[in-house]
Design a protein around this nucleic acid. Sequence first.
DNA 1: CGCTGCGTTGAGCGCAGTCAACGAGCGTGG
DNA 2: CCACGCTCGTTGACTGCGCTCAACGCAGCG
Lengths: 245, 245
Amino acid sequence: MRGDTGIPHPCGACAFYPDSVWQPVENGSISMLARAFSRKELANGQTLFDQGSENRGVFCVSRGLIALRTHHEGGTSTLLRLAYPGEVIGFRSFLEDRLHLTEARALLPSRVCTVARRDARRLVQANPTVLARLASRCISEIDRSHERIIAAATASNKQRLAALLFDLLEAHGEREGNHLRMHLPLSRKDLADLIGVPPETLSRLVGRLGKEGFAIDGRNVAIPARTAAKAGTEPPLTKTCPAAS
Amino acid sequence: MRGDTGIPHPCGACAFYPDSVWQPVENGSISMLARAFSRKELANGQTLFDQGSENRGVFCVSRGLIALRTHHEGGTSTLLRLAYPGEVIGFRSFLEDRLHLTEARALLPSRVCTVARRDARRLVQANPTVLARLASRCISEIDRSHERIIAAATASNKQRLAALLFDLLEAHGEREGNHLRMHLPLSRKDLADLIGVPPETLSRLVGRLGKEGFAIDGRNVAIPARTAAKAGTEPPLTKTCPAAS
DNA sequence: CGCTGCGTTGAGCGCAGTCAACGAGCGTGG
DNA sequence: CCACGCTCGTTGACTGCGCTCAACGCAGCG
């Protein structure tokens, strides 16, 4: 983590250093990386960049949670991605040298590390391994998107909400007795935007999941530990069991 | 298109040469590229690679139309992408060195150019510009996927089908008088998989679009030219115009 | 001739979108 | 302190869309 020049790698102390896209930056270029590097603390709800704004560099989430959202005409919006610590955001507008198509906003108090655009570009050109790592992050985003397209085409709204809550429980939940419990980092509208339904429908879905093992009260969510990977996935049973679903 | 060694660039005669991911390959490496390069003719319905198979290289569509589809347990499938001439496919499994997550099948008689994996990897390592172009193709795929996620969340099935038919008309249609006409390269099931509905629902959607300016008979589709970018996008009007929608 | 794949049509019904109203929580300002 | 406005979330009523199962027509083919 410390090159021949004695300058430490800016990401060297980070828990995600081994997988950092900047990890391959070599001794001679570390000073440039250090110069272009900056940390930023984001309060809850603060934006890192706005939709339509110019790219300022490559961003890496260090702490907290960032929502990537696109706003459409008509006031609606879609939450395209949740970015957790270790994940890189803003790489599309960086690599293609174009405006941001999404807005990045902190859902929790967060810290984001930035490598400023001009030097980031030089570093990428000087070190193809960095580009390879960025490409790998692109592919992860393709995989995520494909999974979501498939889920939208094959799963019901209730199933998708249940799956989303499981994912969130995995990331934010804590074991408590034989329950998994968490404080939701998302508003109802954010949840609705994530599964692609209006807030009223989401509210009803939450109500229905409440009868299927989920305990949802405001932003507090809990499930019996063994329910994991089961609830919300049952077939409709419309004719054999009128009380179900 | 002809290097100092006298070996012509394998893509040199291709209409998409300027945008080819291999265009940046330099003189010294062109012989390797030529060695790894092969063309393949695909009959209608023939597969280029199967879901779960090993990657054999980087594929570029030269002629025809390729469908990228994933099959799920239960016999259903989702058509994730249509790849037109000039587009690159199979790059995820190539770059990440993993199995194909999708199946590639020709929807029309097609020609596909392949650069075999081992040499393709060497070429990418030797020439970062090639990697940059591959990354650009990744980003295009991210953009396409995001648009589709947004469409699934904001547009009705009918709107999405209308938009899909417009896109297909743009790619395959011919002006005929003041109509746009085409022969659909997709079966009903493929259309259904593309917009994420069962075939029965697609059939009904087709029926409804038939009352809104589309003339759809089997695989023959036509619209009045001025209908473009209009039909299927009207608001429901459920209360003011009972005959609509 | 029967088989199979493809596409359509019908019946039934739950789910979801829309409009609307309401209540809780909260910060502001008089 | 209360009134007010605001956001957020929920609930109700209504309508129609879309999923499911089922049957049928049809073409190609052995």
